[in-house]
């Protein structure tokens, strides 16, 4: 893949990647992390699944966001390093719109927040979400249903 082809291929997903990052990190970090994501994508471009570039990017972005958060929080509290990876939007950001949803959101596990985010925020269908998480579509569907059921329970 030439640089021109790379730019052509990924130009169309820039808005989605922008939103993905905006949901998860401070605005001042969006561009830096996006650069990181696309540098990795360029480095590993031969492994990008044709036709599924966006889920593949989301997967890379998940790594980058989780590590970014860890590196930020580790400066304050090293115990964060022992916690599960979490790349979902934060409860604080959700609280800007819906405080009760935020309170429920924080009670979900990182994995539950992740599946709901991919579906409801990123708007991926189950197949693409499953590709991000590297699980079967059925497994994702079950996981999503379970997570939503728990969220509904927390909200009720």
């Amino acid at each position: 893949m030439t640089p021109e082809e790379f730019t052509s291929t990924y130009r169309q997903v820039l808005p989605q990647i922008t939103k993905y990052l905006v949901r998860r990190v401070s605005p001042s970090d969006v561009e830096d992390l996006a650069s990181r994501i696309f540098e990795i994508a360029w480095t590993k471009r031969s492994e990008a699944p044709k036709g599924f570039e966006l889920p593949w990017l989301y997967r890379i972005a998940g790594f980058v966001v989780a590590n970014h958060r860890r590196s930020q929080k580790a400066k304050e509290n090293f115990l964060i390093l022992f916690r599960p990876r979490d790349s979902a939007p934060s409860a604080e950001d959700i609280a800007l719109s819906d405080l009760s949803l935020s309170e429920a959101w924080v009670k979900l596990t990182p994995a539950e927040r992740q599946v709901i985010s991919l579906s409801s925020f990123e708007g991926l269908d189950n197949a693409d979400s499953a590709r991000v998480l590297e699980i079967s579509t059925n497994a994702f569907a079950l996981r999503l249903s379970k997570a939503k059921a728990k969220l509904r329970g927390l909200l009720s």
């Binding site: 990924y10 820039l14 905006v22 605005p27 996006a34 719109s97 949803l101 935020s102 409801s120 925020f121």
Partner: peptide, 23 residues
């Protein structure tokens, strides 16, 4: 959930394609 999407309130502009060229 859609209503609470943090991206709804974001003012960030979409990333420039220059970022791809740099990558």
């Amino acid at each position: 959930l859609r209503k609470a999407d943090p991206a709804n309130k974001a003012k960030t502009e979409p990333l420039s394609a220059e970022i791809l060229a740099a990558a």
